[in-house]
Structures are given as C-alpha cells and as structure tokens.
Amino acid sequence: MSKDTIVIREIQPEDNEQIEQVIRNCFHEFKIPLEGTAYSDKETPKMFESYQNSNDVYYVIDNSGAILGGGGVKPLVDFETDICEIQKMYFSPKVRGKGYGKLMFETCLQAAKKLGYKQCYLESAPQLKAAIHIYESYGFKHLKEALGSTGHYSCGVWMIKDL
C-alpha cells in the first residue's frame, strides 16, 4: 500500500458497501455494542445517500478503489443548529497508526468550520482509547451526558469543542 495511491475524498454511491463493512468490522473487532450505536443506524448501509445535504459531508479513505475508512460531519440532531457532530469515523486496521485517522479528523474539523458550525460534538465508545486520545489532543472536552438525539445510547463517551 503506497501513500501516493491513498486519498481522502467525498463519498460516492459505489463506496456504500465497502464503508459499511469497515464500520461494522470495527464493532466486532473492538467488542462495541451493536445496538444503540452506528452499527444499527439506518443510514450505515447507505452512507452516500445520508450525506447529501448542504450542511453535511462524509469523506472516505480511498486506496486505489479500496475504501479503508471514513468520517463525516452532520448537524447534531434535535439540538442547536450551530453545533455539528463528527460521526461514523472508523478505519480498517490497514491504515491505523499511519496518520490517516488524524488527517481524516482534521479534514472533518475543517469541513465543520467551512460549513459554519460554531461547536463540534462527538460520541465514542470507551473501547476506542486511541481515538479518544486524539480527540483530547485536539482540545475536545468530556461531557457528563449526551447532547441531541443521536440514538446512540450505548456510547459512553461524549465530547465537545469550540471551533
């Protein structure tokens, strides 16, 4: 896998099946609950279609047609309109530890600013320690409870950052 063939780009319809598999595999690998998480979201099998509004975007990591990860920005459901949520950020083991997670995270934060959001919220599972460490290093602060109506009642980590 050569770095020159890896790009971060906006999702396309043909990416749906591969990104769904990457997302679902992470839940099994890290033993994250399947219910009350992105695993059981109705949009997970149709990620392209789920990110087609003017105030959201989803990116994938593409290695010559192989989708190895992704992450997106959407308005936080049932909450203030100037707060977005970084969501469905999952990566194949093939790209973990190589800086692509940070690059995707930075891409999402830049997109959130460009879309005009004032704060960025995220939810995670305690099992994803490396991801939580990255969020903290970017200035995300822990919250005592969830914001909005994400439906992810099995996520036990809630964080927010001013943009």
Rank of each mutant, 00 (worst) to 15 (best):
L122W: 04
K114S: 13
M47D: 06
N53Y: 08
Q12S: 10
I32M: 12
K46A: 11
F27A: 12
D78T: 00
K118W: 01
P75I: 00
Q12N: 12
L147S: 11
N25T: 08
I11D: 04
T37H: 05
K144N: 13
G72E: 01
C155S: 10
G151S: 13
V73I: 15
K74T: 12
E123I: 02
G139A: 08
D56C: 06
I19M: 09
A125D: 01
I6K: 15
Q18K: 00
E85G: 10
W158M: 14
Q21L: 08
G69H: 08
R24K: 14
Y100K: 00
H28R: 14
G71I: 02
A131E: 06
T107M: 06
L103I: 04
I19K: 04
K88G: 04
E35T: 05
P75Y: 00
K118F: 01
P126V: 01
L68I: 11
D162G: 00
G148E: 07
C108F: 04
Q119W: 01
M159N: 04
E14G: 08
L68W: 12
L109K: 03
K161Q: 12
V157L: 05
L103A: 14
V60M: 09
K113M: 08
F48Q: 11
E123F: 08
C108D: 05
E85R: 06
Q87E: 05
T37V: 03
I23R: 02
E80Y: 09
Q12E: 12
Y58K: 08
G99T: 07
G72W: 02
V7G: 06
E85S: 06
I61L: 15
V157W: 03
F105I: 01
Q52E: 15
E123Q: 12
F27N: 09
I23Y: 06
L163S: 03
Y100R: 02
